[in-house]
């Protein structure tokens, strides 16, 4: 476990949901460091807390206790608005269901996070084109999501995740809805993001073959870290 130069430092992180009378522990006192340029995969059965951990690291969920520092900022302590800004600048998110905006073209979808920055229209266009080029979809910029295949949609989503040049790229089952060929392509792109572009990539997956693309795999069970 890298301790020096860690991008993400998680200490004693717990998350407890109340489901009516019953309390469900999604994360139980998890501590973890994730280094720069790592491609970390989180594995575990359903309900093991891997997605919850990913959401807390990405700043879209809050823990019950503990801290989660990303580049020395404890994201659990940021208020709603600052957290939104922080996500925009530091995290790229890739979803299982792609989550592209159906009425916007591939170009416009990728441009969405950049509209929140101070970049000029020209700068935005250059960055969007670069991102689309990186995922091999420069020629699909004017296509709507429904005009793309599943694999292409997910690659557009990856372009959207990296267009702001974030520190972290987090992916929640990114190959869950793809055929094996498209899955290989997407995993290849994610791998190159960590190895070539210097991003820290954290991916949740059920699939051991997908996990094999990572540089490190962590297993969770019943909210606890069982193997690193």
């Amino acid at each position: 476990m890298p301790t020096n130069g860690a991008i993400v430092q998680i200490r004693n992180l717990s998350k407890i949901y109340a489901q009516g009378e019953i309390q469900v522990t999604a994360l139980d006192n998890v501590s973890l460091d994730i280094g720069a340029c790592e491609f970390l995969t989180l594995m575990g059965p359903s309900g093991s807390g891997k997605s919850t951990l990913l959401h807390i690291i990405a700043g879209i969920d809050r823990p019950t206790s503990g801290e989660c520092r990303v580049q020395n900022i404890d994201v659990t302590r940021l208020n709603e608005s600052r957290l939104a800004d922080w996500r925009n600048q530091n995290v790229g998110f890739v979803f299982q269901t792609f989550n592209l905006i159906p009425v916007l073209t591939a170009f416009e979808n990728v441009e969405l996070p950049l509209l929140l920055t101070q970049l000029s229209r020209k700068e935005r266009r250059q960055q969007v084109e670069t991102a689309l080029d990186l995922v091999g979809l420069a020629d699909r910029a004017r296509h709507l999501p429904r005009q793309l295949s599943g694999g292409q949609e997910q690659r557009v989503a990856i372009a959207r995740a990296l267009v702001t040049d974030p520190t972290l790229v987090v992916a929640d089952e990114p190959t869950g809805n793809l055929d094996s060929h498209s899955a290989q392509e997407v995993l290849g792109v994610l791998k190159s993001l960590s190895s070539d572009a210097g991003k820290t990539v954290i991916m949740v997956t059920h699939d051991p073959k997908a996990a094999a693309f990572g540089t490190r795999t962590i297993h969770l069970e019943k909210g606890e870290l069982i193997k690193d």
């Binding site: 879209i60 608005s81 800004d85 996500r87 600048q89 998110f93 269901t97 905006i101 929140l116 959207r160």
Partner: peptide
């Protein structure tokens, strides 16, 4: 709904 969630994740405020 999911689109709104996505926009929030991308950094759009409430």
């Amino acid at each position: 709904t999911r689109e709104i969630g996505t926009l929030r994740v991308l950094g759009y405020r409430r």
